[in-house]
Design a protein around this nucleic acid. Structure first.
Lengths: 140, 140
DNA sequence: ATTGTAAATCGTAATGATTATGAATTAGAA
DNA sequence: TTCTAATTCATAATCATTACGATTTACAAT
C-alpha cells in the first residue's frame, strides 16, 4: 500500500485530508516495521506538541477499518503497519530485535481444515518470532 | 496436568500450599477452556469475598513460570489454562463461542525454517479460531 | 504443641494502554 | 466567503495489570 492509494481510499469513504493523518501515514510509509500508538506519539510530539492520544488512536482504527493498515497484538500492545500489497494470503516473520517483517508464503490452513471437519474456522494467527539476518549477527 | 502433579511442582520449588491456590487450581481442573483473571475473580469472590487482584495475578504468573499453566493473549487479555499433558509439540483450535480447546498435531515449522535460512527463529504462535462442532449448530 | 520466620494474602493505590467526551478548530463544498 | 460536518484538542474515564505496606498464615525447627 502506498500513500497515494491510501488517500484515494480515505477520499472515497468521505474522510478529509488533514495534516495529522498525513504525518501518521508518512511514518508508516518510511518503514516496514510494526509501530505502536506510543511510537507514533513519541516521534510526532516533537514536531507537533499538541498531538493528542485521541487523534492517533482514532485514526489508527480508521485506517485499519479501511484496510490501509493492518494490526497485530505483540506483548499486549496493538501494533500497526502498512497493509501488505500482496494479493495472495501469507504470514509474517517478525524480528523481535529490529522489528522488521518478512512475508512467508507457506500457510498450513488447508491441512488444518481436514483435521477439524465439523468446526467452522473463522480466522487464524500464524506468526514467527526471532532475529533476522542482520540482528542475528550482532553481538548483543 | 493434574492437581496432584501441580502441588508436587509447587512443593519442589518451595511454594506453600494455600487455600487460595487450591481454589484457583480447582477452577482449571474443572474445565478445558482458557480463563482470564477476571473469570477467576468473578467466581471466587462469591465464596471468598476477600479474594484480591494481587492473589490471582501473582499466582497465575507463578503457575505459568512453573509450567503448571499455559497462557495466550486473546483480545488483549491474558488467558490461562492447564498446561497440556501431551509431550509432543502441538497447537490449538479455540472455539470463540464456548471457549473449548482442541489440540492440533500439525505444525508447519519444519517447512518454515528452510524458508528463513539466515534467521534465528525463537518462537511462533499458531492458533485457529472459530466455532466447534457444538457451537456451529446452535442457532444464535 | 509452640514459636519464629519467610511466604502469602489483603486492601488499596499506581501504572499503562486504550477509549470516550465535550468544546474548539478546520477542511472542503456551496 | 460562509456554512456545516468532520476532525482535533485537552482531559477524563475505563479496563487490565502490577505494585506496596500491613497483616496473616504455612510450616519447619525447637
Amino acid at each position: 500500500m502506498n500513500i497515494t492509494r491510501a488517500w484515494e481510499i480515505l477520499k472515497d469513504n468521505g474522510y478529509k485530508k488533514t495534516d495529522k493523518r498525513e504525518l501518521i501515514l508518512n511514518m508508516f510509509e518510511d518503514t516496514d516495521k510494526y509501530l505502536t500508538a506510543r511510537d507514533l506519539l513519541t516521534v510526532l510530539k516533537k514536531d507537533f506538541p499538541g498531538m493528542s492520544f485521541d487523534t492517533i488512536y482514532r485514526n489508527l482504527s480508521t485506517f485499519v477499518d479501511l484496510g490501509i493498515l493492518e494490526e497485530t497484538e505483540l506483548n499486549g500492545e496493538r501494533n500497526f503497519r502498512m497493509h501488505c500489497e500482496s494479493e495472495h494470503h501469507h504470514h509474517h516473520f517478525i524480528c523481535m530485535e529490529c522489528g522488521k517483517v518478512k512475508e512467508i508464503s507457506v500457510c498450513p490452513m488447508e491441512m488444518i481444515q481436514e483435521k477439524l471437519p465439523d468446526c467452522a474456522i473463522e480466522s487464524h494467527k500464524f506468526e514467527i518470532y526471532g532475529k533476522c539476518q542482520n540482528c542475528v549477527h550482532e553481538t548483543v
